[in-house]
Structures are given as C-alpha cells and as structure tokens.
Design a protein around this nucleic acid. Sequence first.
DNA 1: TTGTACGCGTTATCAT
DNA 2: ATGATAACGCGTACAA
Lengths: 344, 344
Amino acid sequence: MEKTGKPTINDVARIAGVSKKTVSRVINRSPLLNQDTRARVEAVIAELGYVPNVQARALALRHNFLLGLIHDNPNAQMVMNVQAGILEAIRDTEFELIVRPIDRGSSTMLADVRAFLERQRLYGVLILPPVSENDMLADVCNDLGTRYVRMGSTALDAPEHMVASNDSDVVVEAVNHLISLGHSRIGLIAGPHGFRSARERRKGFEQALSEAGIKLPRSLIADGNYTFESGLAAADRLLDLSPRPTAIFASNDEMAAATLHAARRRGMSVPEDLSIIGFDDTAIASHIWPPMTTVHWPIISMGRSAALKLLADFFGDDQAVEEPSLFPSTLIHRASVAPPRAGS
Amino acid sequence: MEKTGKPTINDVARIAGVSKKTVSRVINRSPLLNQDTRARVEAVIAELGYVPNVQARALALRHNFLLGLIHDNPNAQMVMNVQAGILEAIRDTEFELIVRPIDRGSSTMLADVRAFLERQRLYGVLILPPVSENDMLADVCNDLGTRYVRMGSTALDAPEHMVASNDSDVVVEAVNHLISLGHSRIGLIAGPHGFRSARERRKGFEQALSEAGIKLPRSLIADGNYTFESGLAAADRLLDLSPRPTAIFASNDEMAAATLHAARRRGMSVPEDLSIIGFDDTAIASHIWPPMTTVHWPIISMGRSAALKLLADFFGDDQAVEEPSLFPSTLIHRASVAPPRAGS
DNA sequence: TTGTACGCGTTATCAT
DNA sequence: ATGATAACGCGTACAA
C-alpha cells in the first residue's frame, strides 16, 4: 500500500478484517451483505480515503464508466447544448463524457465507430442528428452490446433508445402564426435533403399552407444546408422573386440569421418588409436585431434525458427514472414577425 | 480466445510462435527487435485483426489514452472551437477526448479536479481560460504527475505548458485603427475583473489611448462580464453619456453584439453613429448586420497545438513537433467601423 | 534479441 | 453471508 500511496481494495480488506470480495460487494452495493460488515467496511473506506481504481474495474467488468457522444453536426451551439445537458446528468456520478465527432460521408464511418466502441468499451453512447438517423449505426451498437440513445426530430426507435422532438407539429404552429397575421406569400428555406429534421420541418410547412388552402409555388422553396452561407444564397433567391414573399420560415436559426442579413443588405426592414421565423432558439436568435422569432428546441433537456436513459439500469430501481422520450418544441415570439405591409 | 471472440495478446503470441512480451514489444515499437520477428508478429496481428485492450493497458501502464479538457467557460463557441482543434490533433490516433467542465467559484474545485485526475489517470489535460490562469491547478497537475497545457491570453507558464495569444498587442492595433479614423471619444466595455484576458485587453486599450495622447475619462469604461446581457447593460451606460462615444471596443464578440443591439434599439446606425470592434471572431461577428470588425483569435489552431504539445513525448522524436507557444491574433476588418460623423 | 514469472486492482466462480 | 482463487489482458523485471 505504501508503494504508490494509494490504498487498494486489499488494504481495505486487510484492515477491515474481511476478504477482497466483501469489499467489492460493498462498493457494488450488493444486497446480500450483513449490515454490520457493510458499516465496518465503509468506515475503513472512509478512513483510508479509498477510491476504487476505474482502470481495474474497466478491465474486470469489460466496460468503462464513460459515456460517448457521437455526432456529425454542423451546428456548434447545438452540440454545446447537448453536452451541457449530458454533463448536468452525470455531474456527481463517476461517469465522464467522451466526445467523438465522425464523418458522416466517409465510407469507413461505420467501421470507425465500431472500432471506437470496441476499443473504448463505453458504458453507452448518445448519437446526435443527423447521423442518429442512420439505422446501421444503431445496428452496430446492438451488435456490440453497447447501450445507445438516439436524438432526433421525430421518433426513429424504441422509447428506451430515443429522445425526440416534434418538429413538424411546431412548424405548423409557426406557419399558422404567419398566416393568421395575414401572410400568404410565405417562403421556405429548407434544410439539406439527407436530414430527417429537414424533411419534418418542410412537412410541417407544407401542411400548414395546405390546411389554410394556400397554394405553394415551387419557387417559394429554396434549398439550404443549415449553414449561414447557404442561407444567404437561399434568401437572395427568395428575395429576388417578384412579387417577393412577405415572410420566410428558415429551417434553422443560422439560415434565419442569414435571411435577416440578406434582407438588410438590400435595405429592407425587418419585420416591416419581411417577417422571419427560425428554428433552434440558439443564442444568435435573441442576440441579433431585431430579436428573432424562432422555435425553441429543448436540446439541453433532451441531452440530460438521453444521458439519464443511458444510465437507467446503472441507477437501477433507486431512481426509476422514467425519462420522457418526447420533448415538444415551442414557438418563441420575438420581434422579427409582423403583419405584411398593406397592399403587399 | 474463442470465448469472447476477440483475440488477445496471447493468441497472437501463440500463433506467431513467440512470447507475449515480444508481441508487446511490437505494439510498443520497441527498437530492439529482430526485423523478421517483427514482421511475422505484425502479419499475425493483421490476420487476426488483433487490437490491444486499452483497459488492460491502462491498468498496467497506470495511465489511460485519454486527453482531458478542463474548462469553466462562458463562451460556448470558444469551447467548441478548442474542441475542434484538439479533435483534429488526435484524429487517427488512439487518443480520445474527455470533456470536464468545472465550477471556478466552487470551494471544492481543486479537490474535484484532483479527484478527477486521480481517478481517470489521463494522459494529459488541457486547461482553458479563465480557469487556466489559476496556478494552483497547475500545481495539482504537477503534484499528480499529469501532463498539462494551459491556454491563455498571455504567457503564464513555461512554453511546454502554455499556448498563448497576444491580446494586449492586438487591442492596441484595434484602437489605433479607430484613432486613425478620427475617433477620440472611444468607450471600453471591459471583461470581468478576475480574467487575465480582460486585464490584457484593457491594458492594450489604455496603452493605445495613452500613446495617442488621448485622455480617458473613467466614465468611458464600463464593466461587463463577457455575457450578452452584461454587454447590453454596459453599452446602455456608455450610450447614455453626453457627449456619446463615437466608437466602442468591447472585450468580446458577445458584448460587441450586445452593443450593436443596444445601439439599434435606440435607433442609432452602425457604423454611421457608432463604430464597434469586438474580440474573438466567433460566428456571430460575421453573421450579424453589419458584419462586425473584430479580433480573430486563432483558437482552433491553439487547441490543436496544445493537444500536440501534450502528445509530444508520446510521438517521441518521430515527429519532433516543436509546436509554437505564441499565436498572434489579428484584426479582421469588416463593416462596423467608420470615421465619426463630422462634428460629433 | 527473446522468454518466464509476476504485478496492476478489480470482479466472478464456486465453494462453505 | 463470506472467502479462496482464478480470471481480465497487458507491461516489466530479470533471467537466458
């Protein structure tokens, strides 16, 4: 014991006058343990300041006390928010978070993830959209026996493996809001085709217009890919139209900010000349001028909940955390929306 | 071997007809090895698809193949950028990144970090500002024999432990730019007192004015704490002055964006009525309207370099990565700066 | 240059 | 309810 300075399970066992295994049982909260023995061992543990060696446990248990965050995401703020939620969930536990960005486009992506999971033997992984939409990734996890939870804009998996929002519903609400204000020429800046979230948001957009009996010419839909630059180009395309749309729904905040940017660049006033609604409620939405109406996506809560789902069987029945799987998004009203100008 | 399906070092040794130790030497690139033996073992490794078990290595070596990122940072974008740099550095290595936010204000902070390092036995840690300015944290690392690299706005430690920028110099340049345009009533939105970066930026600000012979009334300095909200309050204080400043330097982009926000809220035009310069060159600086002149802080490069410094003795002489310790920031000219209005 | 025996600190098996 | 002993997979003396 004196060699490294750190007490081991052997030291605890010797001093407490029990076997290693008994100490191990105390650590792992084994139910079949005499109360007195447990108390005695715990006293020694406290006295020695003994802390189990995680590397040794990992070797014996064949898994680490680590959670993985797998993502391939264009939106830094979103990744940060998810991280914040996860870290909140594992605060004061022995778990840590390891971040693993991957390249969705790479042909070796699945093999890379598999190698990563095999090597690190994580307790479980959280998978962010858009790569969370790839079912083959979930297959790899199942194959390797790695717990996983996917995050997404709609349910893609069983509740224990999924934390989802209801993108299309809330977009219907957002567009209805524009319609109720008198808008009828409403443009959409869509997200990239491969993204389920992009499809869901577009679906909600089209549904709202259709339910209101408004015809949607193809020209009012401009494709973007969730980046600011693509939003700029898409907004320019929309604003070059004649007549111009009086309102634009952008599929994320970044592109909504770009729309505002494009409008101001050509001297238009927002919301007087153009109403804009974004999606995500990232920091930029409330920081730009005018503050932007957007959809709040409860991403921090989703991250926390996803982590708790992953840890559910670790906590056991103690907490019985029945984490929800659906997190409704909500429309945040700010200053980028107004009725259309008379006669426009 | 057939039990878990995964080949171990023993399998490789048996099939290659050598001892475990020899295989171990191959894995660890031991120089004293017969070339033939090495080739033979490597062939078996490839054939079996053998991958060393990191948990077992961690136990034997007493350290993991993990890098830690310790931070207590108000700026999400900055943390993301550092992460991006680090992850770029460890891509294609066996290292992974584990993220550890801490509470700078907590009285148990040092003890928490110590416990974290003792438990995880990381290969090394990167420490972000502002907590990187705390020398006691470095002491803890030294004490535990954990490699560390600190990031900061000025050199705080030996080169092998430090990656720094030159905040005060570049702020001098930024303010000189304003002065050369004819500004003389220039306001400062300072960062929080505890931050070295805040002090450095303020130092540069005061130095530039002093060198130009411009007197700086105390009222032209408003305190902020790097958040958008604090920037809003500080900007309002400055803009309530009479006469008003014709230009404002904000110690980070978040507060610069808030300054723009505050100016527009009261109907002012930027840059016509007010020039603004920020610091960080985060995404918001180029996304808002008008695009904001700011200081580009090469944070991604710094993150990458910091990680490479940490891994220097792992790579050994192979790469001999003499990573730089100083990363000069540069002024990015955009559209939020113009000469003051005549007569103002 | 290569092999043997043992240590790293924990959990699992199977007794009692 | 508790203990002796064998894994877990790899690295290191030290010997050969």
